[in-house]
Design a protein around this nucleic acid. Structure first.
Lengths: 221, 221
DNA sequence: TAGATTGTTAATCGATTAACAATC
DNA sequence: TAGATTGTTAATCGATTAACAATC
């Protein structure tokens, strides 16, 4: 498993997709899969799948294909899901609390360990048995209770400040739900869920399509 | 504005980002911006920004740069945000109800018009003044009240079925929060928010980094 | 006018696809 | 062994970057 160079983003983005698909195949009790069959299922070329998988090593077998459980397990390890990840959430508004209540995470080794919010009305309340702590205790708490991942779901105006604070308390991975492009040392990994970007990408394609069909009509008439 | 070819995904993904940044600049009352200045701010090359913008036409002015309000407005139009988009949500669990309560959408012309759920316990309840309707009335309702966008936030096992139903009732854009790769006619636009994929991309990079630093040590010692 | 910066073409880089020898 | 399918190298394609003439 040679990891001497940073894996291209294009490949990294497909890894969870492979993982998800392999889990489906496993649930269907499929034992083996060829790059061609997997490609057909995912809408990728067989070549790309072999290329991607080989980035991490030869998990297949010539003339046979890939063992579904084995490949699933390998990708699970590559994704780091064989470990437990402790997660804290800052900002328990709509999205923050939805994440706090999301049960599926547990299955993949994620453990919600603390919730923080700045609103007096929320502090002290419980979500899934976990008490909401005052946001101004975040740094202190993190120093004593390290987490692997911080979920950032505060109002935009506090996002940068709180992220920087968390990083100074040792956080090295942020799952960012605010529409803010965080500026942090590049020793910190950030995964953005820019919800409105994703919604706008949808309206863009919808709009683009309408223009297309209009101009098609134009040509026909 | 030549749109004879489909805009590459790479460009489409950056459009909402440009829009967001231009809005920030506008809020800071910046009147003009050069591709270089915008590039520095966003971490892109000036060249790429000019290339991207020119995909849609010459909105700049030689020797001056781009007018921030004008460019913002142009991209707003390109994204289709000058129109109103009616949205319905199916599945008002954690994520569905978080989306239903998200206030920011209104600003960009999105209007939440209906909520659906299959659970007896939820039907009849209200979120933001909107009553939750039985999911089995979805198709009927959509036929009478067309929406531009359907938010899909049901349990995975119903996602494909409900999406197909909505499409047969005229829906042409789906904002998909389920971890399912929907299979729909390509006349339908889908924007996926695969939350666990995004979380796993984070653990992958975190893990990858650890391997790096370990092997660095290895070399040093 | 001179300086600045775009719009656009050409060069480079990286990612995807094709091809095929290795091998199970 | 013969057939199938991987692992891997080479060819192609597309996206990014560089360069520069056009022009405000």
């Amino acid at each position: 498993m040679d990891m001497s160079e940073r894996v291209p983003d294009a490949v990294a983005r497909r890894l969870p997709w492979y993982y998800r698909t392999l889990r489906e195949l496993e649930a269907e009790e499929t034992q083996r899969v060829s790059s061609q069959a997997l490609g057909r299922r995912m809408g990728l070329t067989a070549s790309q799948i072999r290329q991607d998988i080989n980035y991490f090593g030869g998990f297949g077998q010539q003339g046979y294909g890939y063992s579904v459980p084995r490949l699933r397990q390998c990708i699970e390890q590559i994704l780091g899901l064989d470990r437990t990840h402790r997660i804290a959430i800052v900002g328990v508004g709509n999205i923050g609390s939805a994440i706090a209540r999301y049960p599926e995470f547990h299955r993949d080794g994620f453990e919600m360990v603390a919730l923080f919010d700045a609103s007096e009305a929320r502090i002290g309340n419980k979500i899934e048995g976990l008490e909401i702590l005052p946001a101004d205790q975040l740094k202190q708490w993190l120093l004593q209770n390290p987490v692997q991942i911080l979920v950032l779901a505060t109002p935009s105006e506090y996002a940068q400040e709180i992220a920087a604070e968390a990083v100074s308390a040792g956080v090295r991975a942020i799952w960012n739900f605010t529409p803010v492009d965080l500026s942090l040392p590049d020793t910190v990994e950030v995964s953005n869920v820019h919800l409105s970007d994703s919604l706008m990408a949808l309206t863009f394609r919808l709009h683009e399509r309408e223009i297309h069909s209009r101009s098609e009509k134009w040509i026909r008439e």
